[in-house]
Computed example of a mutant assay.
Amino acid sequence: MTTRPGPIDVHAHWLPQHFFGLAPGSPLPPLQDRSGQLHLGDLPLSIATEAMSDIDRVLADTDTAGLGSRVLSAPPFAFPVVDDRGVDDFVGTFNDDLEKACRDSAGRLLGLGLVSLHRPESARKQIAHLASSDVLRGIAVPPLLGSTSFDVSPMREILGAAAEHDVAVLVHPMQLPRPEWASHYLANLIGNPVESATAAAALTLGGVLDELDGLRVCLVHGGGCAPALVGRWQHGWTHRSDVRAAGSRAPQEAFADLWFDTLTHDVDALELLAAKADPTHLMAGSDYPFDMGTHDPLQLPHAAGIDDAALETNARAFLGLDTQE
């Protein structure tokens, strides 16, 4: 796959309007276009409908952001989090549409497809199909499925299939509601970083990264609050046998195997992430077109001393692209 030269945004979303009904069995209300603005049921999302659904708008905004290319995945409210008999068809149709949109973009768009989260055998077949595409480079999944994460089935099996087929995995939080986070948008402002940290803990303390050698997993939003917690995990691993029971490596060492986007909203937070993570595993991310994203995904990494060449090289390695193209 030949992509346009320049930094790559690994964290952006797209959902055409014929998927606005969301995945079969979704607990969420369908999306609606109201006078050009996107609503989730009656909830306004502060997103222009065409920014989420129209490829021409996505391409124009990609150019405006100074990017070489952008990696599209479904928004998290479209994840198939309920085991419904129609999920396999929904996933297959979305992935086919995403592949066509990327293939028609002249090297400016790549994609991360969906999988049937509750059905590892279906997911394995879907991942094998994605692996045969030069424009679909992996999968996007939530950090939690019900009350479980990546250290147990079915999510652990899905990661095993991703590692087997050498595809990338992007982990995006779901903004799950909790009563104590009902006001002030805390389900996002606190909930999303906590979901990502939970996934990071499951991956490092659960021995997943040790078992699945070569697995490439990116936690968006800079890994949420995980960079600030990894020292605490290290202390627990050192002093408690139950913390180190499932993993063979110290958390600080395993944490360096994870990948992250740079969307931390704060230079100090990004510098903390860079101190805890492998610097070659940091990539530009915008969360386009969400209101908690940015129209300029290069500004923050530039402020932290990460240049465009590094951002492009790192993203190409994560996506399994030839770094010599």
Rank of each mutant, 00 (worst) to 15 (best):
M1L: 14
P5F: 10
I8C: 08
V10G: 05
H11W: 09
Q17W: 08
P27E: 11
Q32R: 15
R34L: 14
S35H: 13
G36L: 04
L38K: 05
L40C: 11
G41E: 15
A48L: 13
T49V: 02
A51V: 00
A51T: 10
R57H: 04
R57W: 09
L59I: 07
L59W: 04
T64W: 00
G66I: 01
G68P: 02
G68W: 12
L72D: 09
L72Y: 08
F77C: 09
F79Y: 06
P80T: 03
V81A: 00
D89W: 01
F90T: 00
K100Y: 13
C102Q: 07
D104Y: 09
S105M: 10
R108G: 01
L109H: 06
L117E: 03
H118N: 07
P120Q: 09
Q126M: 03
A128H: 12
L130Q: 04
A131M: 05
D134K: 12
V135R: 12
I139T: 06
A140F: 00
P142C: 03
P142R: 02
P143R: 02
L144C: 09
L144Y: 06
L145Y: 03
V152G: 00
P154G: 02
M155I: 05
G160A: 04
D166F: 06
P173L: 05
M174F: 03
L176E: 14
R178P: 00
S183V: 11
L186K: 12
G191R: 04
E195F: 01
A197K: 09
T198M: 15
A200H: 07
A202Q: 09
L205W: 10
V208M: 08
V208T: 05
L212Q: 13
L215P: 01
V220S: 04
G224K: 00
C225V: 13
P227K: 06
Q234Y: 03
Q234F: 01
V243K: 04
G247R: 05
A254R: 04
D257S: 15
W259V: 05
F260D: 05
T262L: 10
D266G: 03
V267C: 04
L272G: 02
L272C: 06
L273K: 10
K276N: 13
T280E: 15
L282N: 11
L298G: 02
Q299F: 08
Q299Y: 06
H302Q: 15
H302C: 09
H302W: 14
A303Y: 10
D307N: 13
D308E: 15
E312H: 11
A315M: 14
A317H: 15
L319H: 09
L319E: 11
G320C: 11
L321Q: 11
Q324S: 15
